[in-house]
Design a protein around this nucleic acid. Structure first.
Lengths: 361, 361
DNA sequence: ATCATATGTTGCAGTCAACAACAAATCTCG
DNA sequence: CGAGATTTGTTGTTGACTGCAACATATGAT
């Protein structure tokens, strides 16, 4: 199982070095020595090895400003390993080709106009997907082993997306959910690196949430935030249940709606203001259950939930306060994401790089 | 960080061998070779190494029944590494000294009669705790870094139990929550080894739940099942919130109550039957939120929830069906634990062994 | 009784990381 | 301006571990 050997050891160390450079950017050999806990000579050998393989570039003779021999700086070669990331929404598909180190090499986007997203993949990726080491698609919904078990936004249930993408593009795809991808993105390339348990809430046409623990997504898929029942026996939801958060928050279906509502509320529309408050309370209640069950220390409000949170933070907080124990609340930070709309795409790419690095081991 | 070296490699392999024997019992060298993916000679060297260190005993010449040279069987030496496990309840403290391989070497129990559990520790463990490699205490409640943040059953909030135990016994203690410990126990020594996401529900004077993913407890502590709000604005709970599951299920406070109720219901008491049904429904609703948030594939009803589930499975299932998506439900098995009352104690010991093995690496 | 089979043992070779001594390149202080 | 201090890269050596292959051992099957 562990398949541990002396060759395996070198591979692991090489992978660790690549991961270190990918995650923390260009570093001197001395810094790498410190970070990996290996000997200077070992780092030198590994770096030379990786430089020959083309993964790493070493720029020599940087003046450090302090005493001592100047370090040679090691950095990733972006084109040495690329990952195709795709984010699927109901109305459009976005694509990014990301290089080792995190640099975005290409980017594209297509509106769908009702077409099936899978049919748009080849166009939007422009064929570059084939050369990438990994291809990852983020979809808003409940993903289980490449299959989209449920997606309010896309109206899918039990669709084998990984299979469909494979037959459409001729290569393997990894499927993740948008919220978890965004959580990974915010953790790795955003502002939430200190969070040990990060909960990302994604508001699209449906509501999902993704959890990341120590930067890793626990297997088992995302949290269907929209289908937390906040009103037993309440309004009928498209999923067949009653009183789901999505159904109860009927005021807001999509990003445009929330903008109108905040605008109207800002201009003194009492009904809009009331709607915002009620929606915030519903969200806070659903969140209470999720927080009690998962115990995060940071929550990010993404998608249109960002706007809702910014204009209805008080009701969200008070409803949350009514439904979670003080201790769980005390260590909890509520914020909005810094990567904006890019989080899921970046996170999908990072998910791909995680498996790329894993495969090097 | 990774501190990888050639010496580290041997340690890792040695730890892997011990872990393998601890978890899967006595095995032939050939089986170990297969399981660890190492060479026969390597296994031989490791086994000899560990035998000399006293961790492993090799009994030679077992007749296998099939052709070929008979294998030498390697097995753990229980006394080579022991773990002290303690389960704290409001009315009693239970203790087990568990040896490597999982054998229970000693066992004791004391009623508390209102005394502080910490004061009873030295008596119940009989001083053997000091010689154990690890000491683990399981408590029903929300545990965070050795501190009991909240416990309905014990009436504690923010108690530094790890510290109190340390000053009472003169050694370090690990503190885990009962439900998570029981989940670990059922996964490792019980019947739930196939579950990838195992949710254990523990009914004591409070209700907690513990999650185990691939046999490991994700950091961050247990799930306060009893403080999932099932009735917004409902009955006041001791925790200060309103409508908590614990408060709404006021019919049952402890094991004796559920026995009376099931007895009465069996004899035709309509009120008791109704109470059971309502409690089952409340539990199912709270469970719905937890399942939506965590997505387990197996749920075990432990403590007095076992009795509730056995006599009110239908309302639990129907309430669960009303509050979780079909896909999450479809892969879900509901069962009762096989280790009975021992689960938490055994799981606490296994938690200890996990760190013992980790420290060998 | 002999062969096939399965397993443990031994010696050897390959590889890798730590260590130490040395070289290189910069800064600082007199 | 120069010598020493400082930091870092390089090289050769050493110790250790694992894989491999050949051999030894013990049993069942024919």
């Amino acid at each position: 199982m562990a398949r541990t050997g002396t060759e395996e050891l070198r591979r692991r160390n090489r992978a660790a070095l690549v991961e270190q450079l990918h995650r923390h950017g260009p570093q001197t050999r001395a810094e790498l020595t410190e970070a990996l806990g290996l000997n200077r000579s070992t780092i030198g050998a590994l770096a030379a090895d990786l430089a020959e393989a083309g993964y790493v570039q070493e720029t020599t003779g940087r003046s450090t400003g302090s005493a001592g021999r100047p370090s040679t700086l090691a950095e990733c070669v972006p084109k040495a390993a690329t990952v195709t990331a795709v984010e699927i929404r109901v109305d459009r598909v976005r694509f990014a080709l990301v290089g080792l180190g995190g640099e975005v090499l290409e980017r594209a986007e297509t509106a769908l106009d009702g077409a099936d997203p899978v049919d748009a993949i080849e166009v939007v990726t422009g064929g570059t997907a084939r050369d990438a080491l990994e291809a990852v698609a983020a979809v808003p919904g409940l993903v289980d082993a490449g299959e989209v078990a449920h997606s309010t936004e896309l109206g899918w249930a039990g669709r084998d997306l990984a299979g469909d993408l494979a037959s459409a593009t001729g290569r393997e795809w990894q499927v993740v959910d948008t919220a978890t991808a965004a959580a990974v993105g915010e953790w790795s390339r955003g502002d939430a690196h200190e969070a040990t348990k990060l909960l990302y809430l994604h508001g699209g046409r449906g509501l999902t949430a993704g959890l990341v623990v120590d930067g890793l997504a626990p297997r088992g898929g995302s949290i269907q935030l929209g289908h937390i029942v906040v009103q037993p026996g309440g309004r009928e939801c498209a999923c067949g249940l009653r009183g789901c958060l999505e159904a109860e928050m009927e005021v807001f279906g999509y990003a445009e709606d929330i903008e109108y509502a905040t605008l109207a509320a800002g201009m003194g529309d009492a009904a809009a203001r009331d709607g915002l408050r009620r929606s915030g309370e519903d969200l806070g209640r659903a969140l209470g259950a999720v927080v009690t069950a998962t115990g995060p220390d940071e929550i990010l409000f993404g998608g249109w939930l960002r706007e809702l949170y910014l204009s209805a933070a008080a009701p969200v907080r008070s409803a949350l306060a009514e439904t979670t124990l003080p201790h769980l609340r005390s260590r909890l930070r509520l914020r909005t994401p810094v990567l904006g709309d890019e989080g899921a795409l970046i996170g999908a790419a990072e998910t791909g790089f995680a498996t790329v690095v894993d495969r090097m081991r």
